[in-house]
Design a protein around this nucleic acid. Structure first.
Lengths: 332, 332
DNA sequence: ATCGTCTGTGTAATCGATTTCAATGAAGAA
DNA sequence: TTCTTCATTGAAATCGATTACACAGACGAT
């Protein structure tokens, strides 16, 4: 049915080996190369990548395993990874785990069957702790969430510092009762919590925190409860874009004014944060750079398999907007 | 190095054919099946999918080609497609074309080399017009943007009706000078423009429209110019989520109050639209359903290749919020 | 007892490419 | 002229699975 390399060879009057060499830029005389390229063009031949991968033992494929592509952080990272991958002649298989360790295990297994060249992975805390890169058969670069030191390559944000930046900004604005909302499934949440606690401890202030599933619904419900409590916070820090959105929805629903009754700050400088309410103060992560760096580290690791594990720590940038200005005027 | 089916067969004391049958749920006695499964488990064997695909001529892979995964519409559709695909035992290759016909051609070619089972594709207008599904070697389901009638399966929104709903809502609110912003690369933009024009024509009103690249930056720049013109519109309709965002940014920057000086409505009920400004009136597309339907149509088409092309038209839902209420009170 | 029928299993061909190895011929050295 | 050397090319092995086909043995019907 479809055209095989054999057919092209016959049409060009050469052997299949020669056609293969034309395809792979092997040593071929100019005259023959012209002839073969003409035959390829005329026949509409398309090499079969499954056959090529089987024989060459190179799949030129990487896996990208994240919790949910709908989280804008991962959306952006994924775009960066894909751009870098296609530039390097590689393909990407995207997997959504929903923070579910069973799905993570299933997809890692799938990656083995695909014989992927490598994997970029944002694991749950549970999987990160037990992940053995040696037994997998391919290198892994962790993103967003690092596991135990020295085991895997990783590119992460300086989460503690980032959380401290946010808290210190709120302190400067005069806030004292500052609450924090952190994801409970990732190491990232734990690190941001640590920075949050540290910054408040320096001033001798309490650090009330809640841990939750990193979703819009969970955040909205938790904040609704919290705002109804007697000693409610005057400021809230949200540990990711979805949680931040939940905070805002809950505040709006409860009729709590931002920033006058509740200052709000969070992570991820998504486009919408500029437009929501008075504009949201956020800690911007270099998302595209995280994706590209992860891909670069993976290629580096493939080139030098023996090299010890490296951890790249990137810094965030504080973007101040209206949601934390206590004396803010209405905009627009 | 890695374990092959042959090794498992030797360990279990059976032929490779028998191991293959255990893997594929072929006819095997219970006793032998137990033995083989034990050997698979003990050896940590993982079947090589490239080899399986080559021999079986089934790749169980579909391509998903969109303009940019960072567009929330495609983010959601992609998640739906992936969920449905993995449920059906298929893998997904994601490609971003940036509305560039050259990239579209390149990725279609790649899909041929991958011998994908099928493709779900949101093409530019240019490619949609010339897309010949027969010559490709795999079925295509178009999403968001349909090509010439009867050529390809497609699942789209009733774009004209949707645009009319938005315009009529604005008319009810008392708006008269209503402007529209439409994407110039897709048929979707053209259809929404048609509905926009029709609704205004019924009232004998003019229908000023601008066509632009469907990006945040292009929209912001265009709206900034438009708002500076003498006879500026009292309402704007934006043909997708990114353009809508651009309208809002431009209005805010120009100090034009929404909704009092400018009513705003757009497409795509993204989570942030509830939180931006006074809440944005939008036309909600059934995004997850679009993705699942596309996947279902693809499977259907694979089951019945001869069937004539079908076009599924889904309806949108108007979600009214503050951005179009002329007498709206400040919220929160 | 004989003959199909049915189950379960093994042998070997096959998918479509890459890659090893050997062969060919032309050019240059002695 | 003869022998190397080098650049091209082809024949055949190979990657790791699935699958067509053959066949052995158990079983029931006659």
């Amino acid at each position: 049915m479809t055209i095989r390399i054999k057919d092209v060879a016959a049409a060009a009057g050469v052997s299949v080996a020669t056609v293969s060499r034309v395809l792979g830029n092997g040593p071929v005389s100019d005259a023959v190369r012209k002839k073969v390229e003409a035959a390829i063009e005329a026949s509409g031949y398309r090499p079969n990548l499954s056959a090529r991968r089987l024989r060459s033992q190179h799949t030129q494929t990487i896996g990208l395993i994240v919790s949910d592509i709908r989280n804008p952080f991962f959306t952006n990272v994924s775009r960066a990874v894909e751009d870098a991958a296609y530039e390097a002649g590689m393909r990407v298989i995207l997997c959504n785990t929903d923070e579910n360790p069973d799905k993570e295990a299933m997809y890692l297994r799938l990656m083995q069957e695909e014989r992927v060249t490598g994997v970029i992975f944002a694991p749950t805390r549970q999987t990160a702790e037990t992940l053995d890169p040696a037994g997998l058969g391919f290198p892994v670069v962790l993103i967003d969430r690092a596991g135990p030191a020295g085991l895997n390559d990783a590119v992460v944000l300086d989460n503690a510092q980032a959380a401290e930046l946010l808290v210190e900004h709120l302190l400067e604005q005069g806030c004292r009762r500052i609450g924090g909302l952190f994801g409970k499934t990732s190491t990232t949440g734990a690190e941001r919590h640590a920075g949050f606690v540290a910054a408040l401890a320096r001033r001798g202030l309490p650090a009330p925190a809640r841990f939750l599933a990193p979703s819009l619904e969970a955040a909205e419900a938790e904040v609704a409860r919290w705002l109804a409590e007697p000693d409610r916070p005057e400021a809230l820090v949200a540990s990711n874009g979805l949680v931040l959105m939940g905070v805002l929805k809950a505040a709006r629903r409860a009729g709590v004014a931002v920033p006058d009754e509740l200052a709000v700050a969070g992570f991820d400088n998504d486009a919408w944060t500029e437009l929501a309410g008075p504009g949201l103060t956020v800690l911007e992560q270099p998302v595209y750079e995280i994706g590209r760096t992860a891909m670069a580290m993976l290629l580096e690791r493939l080139a030098r398999p023996g090299q010890t594990a490296r951890k790249v720590v990137l810094s965030g940038r504080l973007v101040v907007r209206g949601s934390t200005r206590r004396e803010a005027l209405p905009v627009g």
